[in-house]
Structures are given as structure tokens and as C-alpha cells.
């Protein structure tokens, strides 16, 4: 069986079981490994992608459910022309947010979605949007600072 959807701006048809989680379709079938497996239960956010622009935990969505929809992974941010994504990646690099880095694709996808919806988020907005993304290195001080920094970059 195959499932067709738009992945980072290109139509793909993957020969997979529609019940397979989107995460494994992206990683193993499409070969894009920037989206990470962390918990398999939508508890850590490492697998966050955008489905039609909405932040989505790809480990807990069957690939069949995104048929015909627009899926963006971290690999698609740079070419997607998303102003928020560009600002987020620049801020993340300027502030050296990352440590081990494993959760950061998911953090960046969540932060990009937040800033796309709310270009000037408050600390409370950040808590709400980002609490689903665990970082075991606890880079949270810099994640918060980088989101505020990205907001400033978007205005500039």
C-alpha cells in the first residue's frame, strides 16, 4: 500500500502500512533523520513536525492520516521560506542553545510554530507552547532566550 503526501514541498508516495507512525515513515522510508524518536508516545516532542503548519508529534500519528497533507520536517525549514524558522535557527545558533542536540529538531519545530502564530510570545506563551518538548540537557534557559531573540529578529 502506498500513502501520498507533501513532504518538505515535494510530493512523495511511500510504500508503507498506513498504520505505521508518521515518524518511522519519515525516518526509515523517506530517509530524513532530522526528526527524532524519543518516547513513541507524544510525551517528549523530539519527533515534532508540522502538518499543514500545525506542530504535530509524528510518533503518534499514523502516516495514513496525513495523506494529501503538507508535512514539514526540520530539513524543510531552510528551503520553506518560513520567516519564523529562519529567525529561530539563527537565534539558536547565535545563542548556542544546543548541547547534545537530540531534542533540538523538535524544539525548533515547536518554536517555529509558536512564533508563526504569536510573533511576540510572552514567557507564559513559551511555557505553554514548549512544555511538551523535553530537553534532558535542560537547555531551557537558552531556549527561552532564543525564542525572544528570534521574535526580535522577525521584527527587524
Amino acid at each position: 500500500m502506498s500513502v501520498t503526501f507533501e513532504l518538505n514541498g515535494r510530493n512523495v508516495s511511500l510504500d508503507v502500512d498506513p498504520d505505521m507512525p508518521l515518524l518511522w515513515a519519515i525516518r526509515e522510508s523517506a530517509g530524513l533523520t532530522g526528526t527524532k524518536f524519543g518516547c513513541g508516545a507524544a510525551l517528549c516532542g523530539a519527533c515534532t513536525v508540522h502538518v499543514d503548519g500545525e506542530p504535530t508529534r509524528s510518533c503518534s500519528v499514523p502516516v495514513g492520516a496525513v495523506a494529501g497533507q503538507r508535512v514539514t520536517t526540520v530539513e524543510g525549514l531552510e528551503t520553506g521560506g518560513n520567516k519564523a524558522a529562519k529567525a529561530v535557527q539563527a537565534a539558536w545558533q547565535a545563542l548556542d542553545v544546543v548541547q547534545c542536540g537530540y531534542c533540538q529538531s523538535g524544539q525548533i519545530m515547536s518554536a517555529t510554530a509558536l512564533l508563526s502564530a504569536k510573533p511576540r510570545p510572552t514567557d507564559a506563551d513559551i511555557d505553554e507552547a514548549m512544555s511538551g518538548n523535553l530537553c534532558r540537557c535542560a537547555t531551557y534557559v537558552r531556549i527561552r532566550a532564543a525564542i525572544h531573540d528570534a521574535a526580535r529578529r522577525m521584527e527587524a
Partner: peptide
Amino acid sequence: LPRLDSVAKTTGRAQFGMDVA
């Protein structure tokens, strides 16, 4: 000094053991 791994780890390009295929 900027960390040497920041770019790779903010673009999805960094290769972890999990990414070996």
C-alpha cells in the same frame, strides 16, 4: 567562541547513532 556543533544540530544534519542507516 561559537560551538562547532550548533549548525549541524539546528538543521537536522547532525548524525547520531540513531541516524545510521
